[in-house]
Design a binder for these strands. Structure first.
Lengths: 248, 248
DNA sequence: AAACTTAGTGTAAAAATTACACTTTGAAAA
DNA sequence: TTTTCAAAGTGTAATTTTTACACTAAGTTT
């Protein structure tokens, strides 16, 4: 049996990323059409989370960063590990098997995957002229249908952890532009949490935390009273992130 | 190169368990002396968390359960995954390398490990007459020194997650006998949280949750007023576990 | 019988949370 | 230029939750 050229990638461990974006009103997830590395025309029109086998010399977070860089061209993305998914049956749907056989060197290998979620500002994202590019799609969180592999499980865990973390750490700003209105921030929280947050109380609370600074800038081009824009004060933000701070 | 007999275990993925126990006043962790599977006299007197490579046909939780069963003889242990640890350098201390070379089929293999924590009632645990037995030791959480591999990182993440979970889910009863006094429960919470909980307020709050039922039993053999014993009401407990309940 | 140890109970003050409605501002339409 | 529209922005009272804190009760040991 001719030995294939050695690869750096580890056949047993992959990383999959749930990339959340926010367009001002809806929480979105970045999905890719399953494709074939050496034949971009091959596809089985199944949507999956972006992911890849890890390389043997690379840390798990590095692998996730690499995947996100390939996908978006962005570096320094907010990343959070959500755990390992390792059911022996996680790759056993017929279409999944067919895809693995078409693409992987060891299609029968046991693969456990490490899930991550990432938060990115959707405006910073541009389709890259990379191999991924034409297969990428944003989907509203509520419109994500059945994904390949066990990726619906990973997505579910991601939203669960995101919600939990949003409650007690001041994350979520990664999803917004550098300057944002309180309404944008409110919409973000309200959307991720599934609604029900009082607008006025939210405003009071978030200002009381002290990690927002008002700027002298205002919204432009809106057909109503323009809202003041705010920025994050990084030091206060960091401080609040420790000391098991509870925001909401 | 002669091929070794095929093994079921996957060379790239392991599971390590932080086993917490409670003796009534101190939080303890179960550690094992690093040993050699085929030569129990071999040991390098380094303490590590109990763990093992996973088998290819086994789920991650199953692997953790298997390890805990081998170690304690207990089944149905409360288990919580805390995530994957995958630094390429995690097995690179000289002593770690020496041990791997003595024990593993592929000592140079990249191994990522999935961490778990487990809660067990220390009274139910008896040293098993197994290969593990003579290498097992309970250590007070505060007295755990330097462990092999990256196991101090895993321990740290475990206590962090345990504390977080204790705040918002009614776990921790696994560490106590079936019937327990409120003082025992209080001590447990106070110890895990690192102190500072008001005894009277704790009592009021935990009773208000409604998942404790008072029994007609009392402590015996204590040199003071005996405390009433309580049990958990499983249904209420389950109900509270969902609905992102916040206890403390 | 006295001393000791832990069990068990209540309340008042402070802080946090909730619910809720009207005025302001700028752009667009009439 | 006036009117309309849409979102920005602001305050308070009632309720609930949290906190801090000290004494009495009951059983065992001396």
């Amino acid at each position: 049996m001719a030995k294939k050229t050695p690869t750096l990638s580890n056949p047993n461990v992959s990383v999959d990323c749930v990339v959340f974006g926010f367009d001002g009103s809806d929480l979105k997830v970045l999905l890719v059409e399953r494709y074939r590395r050496d034949n971009l025309d091959f596809q089985d029109d199944t949507l999956v989370l972006p992911g890849d086998l890890i390389n043997n010399n690379e840390d798990l977070n590095e692998a996730a960063s690499r995947i996100l860089y390939d996908l978006t061209g962005l570096t320094k993305i907010f990343l959070q590990q959500i755990g390992a998914f390792g059911s022996p049956k996680r790759l056993s749907k017929p279409k999944d098997i067919a895809w693995l056989e078409a693409v992987r060197m060891n299609p029968e290998a046991r693969v456990i995957t490490i899930g991550y979620y990432a938060l990115i500002n959707i405006k910073n994202y541009k389709v890259r002229p990379s191999s991924f590019a034409k297969h990428v799609v944003w989907r509203g969180y509520d419109e994500v249908g059945e994904l390949g592999f066990d990726h619906n499980d990973i997505l579910e865990k991601a939203i669960h952890d995101l919600r939990g973390q949003l409650y007690r750490e001041p994350i979520g700003f990664e999803l917004l532009p550098n300057q944002f209105s309180l309404h944008q921030l409110y919409s973000l929280y309200n959307e991720i949490m599934g609604g029900g947050i009082d607008r006025r109380n939210f405003r009071r609370r978030i200002l009381k935390t002290g990690f927002l600074k008002e700027t002298e800038e205002y919204q432009e081009g809106v057909p109503h009273k323009p809202a003041r824009l705010y920025t994050l004060i990084p030091e206060e933000f960091e401080h609040a992130s420790k000391n098991n701070f509870k925001f909401y």
